[in-house]
């Protein structure tokens, strides 16, 4: 077991390429998201180079859509930064959950990989680790795939957009939700996990209704994490 654990942080060209390919199917949907962003952004008053630069540098769809909502001739900088931080705060949790496997890497690699950390590749990488397989290739290669197709989609939206005016009518607003749910359901399932998920869901909903916008992910995740410590499993490893 110890030997197996020690190789889980493995990262080579083959693993990165395999990871790239593993995320290609979902990248198709990410392209469509990108198209939707490329269609919506000019309507909010952004010019083409700003839009392309935003998708390239920020690479975080939900927060980019949110900034469109704030886009006026003048934007309150602090409000904008708080909004972006709140929506992307789940990345903090992703980084924390990946740390045990990132720790053996030199800092440059560790932080380099995290440049492309995103929901889909993180969820898939976590699943690989849970199954005892190296997951950093999925994180990096998959992240590069997602980033490429997000930028490509944005470009397509700007240039040949209009083909998809209403993503929701095609069910495309559900892509990420269905993907993430498939990852949850495909993961470890037992009574303890169900209890933890129930706590996470309950806390998330309470935060969603009673706490500031976008706090629900962080609140739910931390509540679930605490529940996991309280109902610790005894038969595990140690």
């Amino acid at each position: 077991m110890a030997g197996k654990e020690a190789t889980l942080h493995r990262l080579d060209r083959t693993l990165v390429w395999d990871g790239f390919k593993a995320l290609l199917p979902i990248s198709l949907f990410v392209t469509i998201f990108g198209i939707a962003f490329g269609v919506a952004a000019p309507q909010a008053g952004l010019n083409d180079s700003t839009i392309m630069l935003m998708s390239t540098l920020v690479f975080a769809g939900a927060s980019q859509f949110a900034v469109l909502e704030l886009w006026e001739p003048q934007i309150p900088l602090f409000t904008m930064m708080v909004t972006v931080f709140a929506i992307n705060a789940r990345h903090l949790l992703m980084g924390a959950t990946l740390y045990p496997w990132l720790e053996p890497l030199p800092p440059a690699k560790r932080y380099g990989i995290m440049l492309v950390a995103s929901d889909a590749n993180w969820a898939m990488a976590t699943q690989e680790f849970t199954r005892g397989r190296p997951g950093l290739g999925v994180l990096l290669g998959g992240g590069i795939a997602l980033w490429c197709f997000w930028v490509l989609g944005t470009w397509l939206g700007l240039n040949v957009g209009g083909a998809i005016r209403d993503p929701a009518s095609l069910g495309l607003d559900m892509v990420m939700g269905c993907f993430l749910l498939a990852m949850v359901v495909g993961g470890e399932k037992n009574l303890r996990m169900l209890l933890i998920w129930a706590v996470a869901a309950g806390a998330s909903l309470l935060a969603f209704y009673y706490l500031p916008d976008n706090s629900h992910v962080v609140v739910g995740a931390i509540a679930g994490g605490l529940a996991g410590v309280i109902w610790g499993k005894r038969d595990h490893e140690h």
Partner: peptide
């Protein structure tokens, strides 16, 4: 426990 909970909290 948190890694699954992030997704549940999103969903």
């Amino acid at each position: 426990a948190m890694s699954g909970s992030v997704l549940v909290a999103l969903l």
